[in-house]
Design a binder for these strands. Structure first.
Lengths: 228, 228
DNA sequence: CCGGATCCTTATAGATACTG
DNA sequence: CAGTATCTATAAGGATCCGG
């Protein structure tokens, strides 16, 4: 927080803390749990070490995240969100829902594995009653990184890093984040991706299809006219 | 949008559009309706003309706002949000609710009249059942700028610039935005401000008290420990 | 390796003055 | 009133290097 807007408005205060370049994307990468410096660098292609260091220091000072030393034998240093930092979730949800409707700027480019999984949470629509409320656990591997999902009675109650902890998941998926994004974005059907060998399903295919269909169809453009 | 994060994540896309310095505050000032270049400059102390021009141009190009020529005899040029730009409301709400709970950075400084009125909307709590659901219209003058409020059955259904259009409001208030903020922030009671001559009420005092009490008590600090 | 710090260059914002 | 122009200060981008 080198420079501030100096306003008494809580929005301006939030921007004092989060408004600098890369700051909110650093926080985004911590939404699913602690990450090391190196993990952040890899998830944020384009950020320079100096900027990443500065943002981490500033976000630590303002109480958004904290630095923690993992106990031996890991002995790694990680960054993780504070309780207050984790309460930025509604901000991310609102920004994602808004950005995806951009009528002018197209949504193109790579995406981090974490973001790909979190997109499911953001756009998962429990109110959609085209499907019956179902219950299942999923284990999704994106680029060899494991994630687990827990749908309980039609609600996505858990999105986390790591494989299924106790019993094996009902459905296990192995794919790349790009294929996962393509399927979620309706650019490719689940069947097509499977047939092309881009995605491998272990367990009930239809249960996976339910998950893929749960996010409301996302208009990535054309929702508004530029004159809007 | 000179520089972009180049990601396929909708959050990053939103930040490509809104992440540059001052951008989101410019949009904030348009939440209650069109404003002229000069109005924006006054509401955003510290912004330089060059930066304001650039932000307006970029936000226009990305479809967040549009430039409009008012018909004669006004003949003024104003900036206003597009439909899509107006859909940033959940983002502002989320940012305001988060920022106000900052455990480290204090919330101090001036605030624009628009922001002072919008704070009421952000923190108005229709679920609070300490009071009966009431219905009333208000006309609030902050630093000689008129705003109108409409509470219907305990819900704040309208916050707008300008005086009451048809019939006179049930309650008319004349004060400064600083006093208004102090009263809403529980730093001063309505009675105290009135007794001190800082606030003048025409109409039913208790109906105004209902409005002031409607926002949930806002903890501006201490909600989390810095270690949180 | 990991977790940065340093150095240099480029881009953006701040300050002030000025113009159609 | 609605901006542009000019200059300076600061922050980000790019590459390299260094200590544990």
């Amino acid at each position: 927080m080198a420079r501030t807007y100096g306003e008494g408005c809580p929005i301006a205060l939030s921007l004092d803390i989060l408004g600098e370049r890369w700051a909110l994307l650093v926080v985004r990468e911590l939404r699913l749990g602690p990450r090391r410096y190196r993990d952040l660098q890899e998830a944020l292609p384009g950020i320079t070490p100096a900027v990443l260091s500065r943002r981490l220091k500033e976000l630590e000072e303002t109480g958004v995240l904290r630095r923690r030393q993992l106990p031996p034998p890991a002995s790694a240093q990680v960054y993780e969100l504070t309780t207050w930092g984790a309460e930025l979730e509604p901000v991310f949800q609102a920004l994602a829902r808004w950005g995806v409707r951009s009528p002018v700027v197209p949504l193109t480019g790579e995406i981090s594995a974490d973001s790909a999984m979190l997109g499911l949470r953001t756009f998962f629509n429990a109110d959609d009653r085209d499907h019956q409320p179902w219950t299942a656990t999923y284990e999704v591997w994106l680029d060899r990184e494991p994630y687990r999902l827990n749908v309980d009675n039609g609600r996505l109650v858990e999105v986390a890093r790591g494989p299924s902890p106790d019993r094996p998941a009902d459905v296990v998926v192995h794919t790349t984040k790009n294929t996962w994004q393509a399927v979620l974005g309706r650019k490719q059907t689940l069947s097509e991706a499977t047939a092309a060998g881009l995605l491998e399903v272990t367990g009930d295919f239809d249960t996976l299809q339910l998950l893929i269909d749960a996010p409301t169809r996302i208009p990535t453009s054309g929702r508004h006219t530029p004159e809007g």
